[in-house]
Nucleic acid binder design. Sequence first.
DNA 1: GCTCTGTATGTCAGTTGTGACATATGCTGT
DNA 2: ACAGCATATGTCACAACTGACATACAGAGC
Lengths: 105, 105
Amino acid sequence: MKEAKEDRLKLAGWRVGGAGDFLDLTPEEAAFAELKLALAFYLRELRGERGWTQSQVARRLRSSQSRVAKMEAADPSVSLDLLVRSLLALGASRADVGRVIVRAA
Amino acid sequence: MKEAKEDRLKLAGWRVGGAGDFLDLTPEEAAFAELKLALAFYLRELRGERGWTQSQVARRLRSSQSRVAKMEAADPSVSLDLLVRSLLALGASRADVGRVIVRAA
DNA sequence: GCTCTGTATGTCAGTTGTGACATATGCTGT
DNA sequence: ACAGCATATGTCACAACTGACATACAGAGC
């Protein structure tokens, strides 16, 4: 009954291996950006699995649709705290979060 | 040559399995606290391995000794962002951070 | 006892992150 | 073309975090 296959994680313009390859980032900054990006994509994936809209997720997180959109886009204005808390609130386990980080691009 | 065995991670008053067992935290809050605590301990461990003082670490992070102390204590006033950025700056890899989270208490 | 070094705790002004709102873009069905 | 829904982007008042400083505490060596 749940047709949660509709989204497919656009993958818009990510042709390169990691995040921040074409910007002059220090190794730490690059690693941090990759980490954040991986969690952002995972958030979108989780939401897709659940078949929810950004607005539904926002309600669940007591946040707003626009902030959810920014989270999934790994916008500079979203913190790791918010990202991780959101994943946990969507049902991911602490270990799930860790695994996503380990396997990040 | 490196006698980095001297610290031993006090483990002060942590007798229970996870963090926040005796406080009324929701599962997400508890998972988040555990995650943060695990990273905090890892920071202390890394610093111990390197044989550095909090002040030395602070200089390296362009922060202050007091903030480093708070990081290691998983003080509510420190963000995951700061914790993770600091670990990366101390030489931990993205995967190291992920593994620590996976294995958190 | 005192001093020195390292760590912990409290406070605060400046910076950054947050939710909310408005608005824009994109897509699907009609 | 238009309406309706989902998502994206910009802005802003308010809340949270940050580095710095002062100060307190703990232990080692004298």
